[in-house]
Each structure stands twice: as C-alpha cells, then as structure tokens.
Design a protein around this nucleic acid. Structure first.
Lengths: 145, 145
DNA sequence: TTCTATGCAAATAGTTTGCACTAAA
DNA sequence: TTTAGTGCAAACTATTTGCATAGAA
C-alpha cells in the first residue's frame, strides 16, 4: 500500500505495529494511525474523524480504536469530559487538563514505581498491568480571565 | 431532620459537609450520602439508586452527585466501564480494578508527590487541583479461571 | 416568601450490535 | 477463498435540559 500523506518512517512504524498486533494493513488504519502520529494531544473519535483525509465511518473508528487499545498501539484515557480520548503509545506519559477550557499539556511525571507499591499492597491481584493517571486544574489563561 | 437509618455520628458528618458546601439538608441528600458512607467500593448512579431506602429520581441523583463532586464531598472516578463511579471522600486513596470481572480493591498508594512534580513541570498551570489515578489488571480469580 | 431541590418528559451524546458487503492475505 | 475489516441502520446506555411543583431556610 502506498500512502502519499505519510513519511516512509511513519509507514514503517505503522506496519510494524500492525504486524505485531496481527492486524491487516488497510487504508483506514493507516489514515487513523497517521492522524494519531501527528497529534500533539489525546484525540476523541470526533477529533480523529475531523482530521482524517479519508472518509471512515464512525462505527469503524470505534471498532478500530478498540483493537488498537487492546493491542497496545494506542493509549486510551478519560479526561472527565464524558468521551474517550486516544493517543499513539509513544513514551509513557500523562496530562494536565484544564477543567475550564480543556487545555491539555503533557507531563513526563509517571507512576511506574507506585504501580509496584500498589502491586505489593494488593491481595487480589498478582499482576497490575497498567494504570491511568490524569491531573486536573485550571490553566493560567482561565485563572486570569 | 431525623433519619432512622443513620447513626448520630454519620448524621453529624453529613450535616457538616452539607453546611460547608452551602447545600440544603434534604431527605434525598441524607439518603444518598448514607449509602456512600456505607459503601466499600465506588458506586455508579445505578448502584446508589438500588441501595437507596428512599425513592430518588435518576435525574436528581445526577444533579446531586454533580454538586457533591464540585464541592469535594464526593470523589468521582472513571473505571473504564463507560459510566461514572462515586465514593465518599474519606482519606485519599485509589483502586485496582479487574479488567475481567470488575473486582475493585482499595490501595493507599497515592501520587501527591508526583502531583508536585507535575506542578513544577507544567508551564500552563499555576495550580493543579486534583488527579485521577487508577490501576488495572486481572484479579487472581480471573487469572486462574 | 424566596430560592434551591426534586420529579417528570424528552432530548442528546457517546458507544455498541447485527447484518450484508468489501477487501486483505 | 477464507477471514478480517468496513459501512449502514438501528439500538442502547449514560447523561443532560426545560419546565412545573415541592420543600428547606
């Protein structure tokens, strides 16, 4: 498959991920992952659809993203807005979200060590696989305004 | 207001919280907070409604819980099930949730220090007010089964 | 009496499901 | 040619909104 809207490097990244997850290479998947690769903050299904250069049905997006999350290509998170946010799983990181305007900023602060502590503490779980960590506040713009 | 289903201590707790939040003392609010005080894990709106000894309309529950969350009486969290979970804000803590059966366990492990790190790191936020931290895994029962 | 809280009906938003068709391997 | 992916219609679930009534301060 030849895509004009992706660099060779991006295509290789995408192919590698799809192969590892045993998912077929389709136009729709390339298009979606290309959007996610370019994104600078987590995107909703609607965001993704708006940014797509190819038309992909909403239902397909939901099913696709679900697979991506299951296979670890994409990280799904909840930003207290009532909808799911997705982002390409690069280096592990988290966000601060403005509870007023929704502004999002990435922070590298992570909780891997605490996951170990929780692991030691729990009695019902031999393995904690993952975590979700989000910070909330009011951003400077909204504070002053 | 006299409630037979609450201890004196619980009533005092509830009153204090309502006063601090400048919310009126109503039967519905006492009933809901009583359920949350007894709960040993986060509850959905549906859970709360099922456990109520008094009939409270679903819409009222949504509005009530929203106020409680805003005023810090109740902690709202997302457990990746598509609905909101609520719990009385006692000592700050978090959960491990089984991605198979939904079993929840409390853990004391917290992230207050990391919130400070994030605070130092961010450029857009003078104040980070709160965070959401959840761990996910497959519980022992589901692992063996 | 005044303002907040509640109930009811209806709408909205996000997400899921069933089924038929298409396309990748 | 077989199985996975996609589109479309419709359903479903959680949550919100508008408006009239009831109840706390």
């Amino acid at each position: 498959m030849q895509l004009q809207y992706m660099t060779k490097t991006q295509q290789n990244t995408v192919c590698a991920h799809l192969d590892r997850a045993k998912l077929k290479h389709t136009k729709a998947r390339f298009a979606v992952l290309s959007v996610l690769l370019e994104a600078r903050s987590p995107l909703t299904i609607e965001d993704i659809q708006r940014q797509l250069k190819v038309k992909v049905h909403t239902v397909t997006l939901y099913r696709m993203l679900k697979k991506f999350v299951e296979s670890g290509i994409v990280y799904q998170t909840d930003l207290r807005t009532g909808k799911a946010y997705y982002e390409f799983q690069k280096e592990h990181h988290h966000h601060v979200t403005c509870t007023d305007c929704g502004l999002q900023e990435e922070v590298k602060t992570c909780v891997a060590r605490l996951q170990n502590n929780a692991q030691k503490e729990t009695k019902n779980f031999k393995n904690i696989n993952t975590h979700s960590l989000e910070f909330f506040g009011v951003c400077n713009k909204c504070t002053s305004g």
